[in-house]
Amino acid sequence: MVSITPLISPESGSLELDRSAALSALESMLTIRSFEEAVDGLFARGLMHGTMHLSIGQEASATGICVALKTTDYITSTHRGHGHCIAKGADLTRMMAELLAKQTGYCRGRGGSMHIADTKTRNLGANGIVAGGIPIAVGAALAQKMRNENNVVVSFFGDGATNEGAFHEALNLGAIWDLPVIFVCENNKYGMSNSTELSMRVDKVSDRASAYGIAGVTVDGNDVNEVYQAAVAAVQRARSGKGPTLIECETYRWKGHSKSDKNLYRTKEEIDQWKAKDPIIRFQEIILQNQLVTQTDVDALANQVRETIREAIKDASAAPDSDPAELLSSVYREVYNG
């Protein structure tokens, strides 16, 4: 069992002014980066099969949102979901084991990269269907409201999902019932190869909020503190019964959509421009400048994260392979007797 230090919300109200909160956010982003670089490497070496969708370059949105959540709050995630999972506190060894098709993985090897859920950290699951998790988040939020529980539900999705009917139906239901749900669009500019310029006529994804009478805001998704600030406002709105918010985090995925992507639809220049806006480097520079941390702190943290990921790979690799003999279990949940 190994996961990130639980994210700490800054007493000062800013991730850029509070040492322990800054370090926890940095650890989260570094862990996401390191985990995904590691699985990218394992895949390249033929040690991991199937496909996966990497969020390298998008670590600030997963982290900034999750800092603003309580441990009892829920999330739904996407096919590009490692970051959400890690930021919410998932066990990195079980995640790695799942990707390595092991019996000890989160899904016992049945789901792989796209289907990790974690009841302990209230992650209701990544989802292989674009926009599939958005109505589910609305339903989980409806349950919170009906039971008078003060939890919020965050639904992560990409820009592509906002062209799906499920997005529009879910936003409408969340709006009319004033549900404690926060819709977080990680706009990385492309739904697979289809750019936002080609796929929508609105300037901002957040413009779509007005169609449903809810708050919509666009933030720099590579600025973890800006994401966090928007999340705090949305969480407060949701918890106080004022309904949903659509937060658009403008960001970029450095890697291709999945393992079949040859990057034919975008230029190297564009990718390099966004790499220059690396959310991790930017945040490190700010907190170094603000003298919250020293370079030694940052280096030590980076080493610690790399070691953690190495351990997770080692432990996961040693676990037994997922077992065809139990394939017929858990197709249905057994009926309770009594």
Binding site: P135, G139, Q144
Partner: peptide, 26 residues
């Protein structure tokens, strides 16, 4: 009205909301 919940004409949203509510114990 809370427990006999009228919805818009929105089958995908309705079923999705039921899935989400069921996942957290409703």
């Amino acid at each position: 009205a809370e427990r006999i919940r009228d919805t818009p004409i929105s089958e995908l949203g309705i079923v999705g909301a039921a899935v989400g509510a069921a996942l957290v114990g409703m």
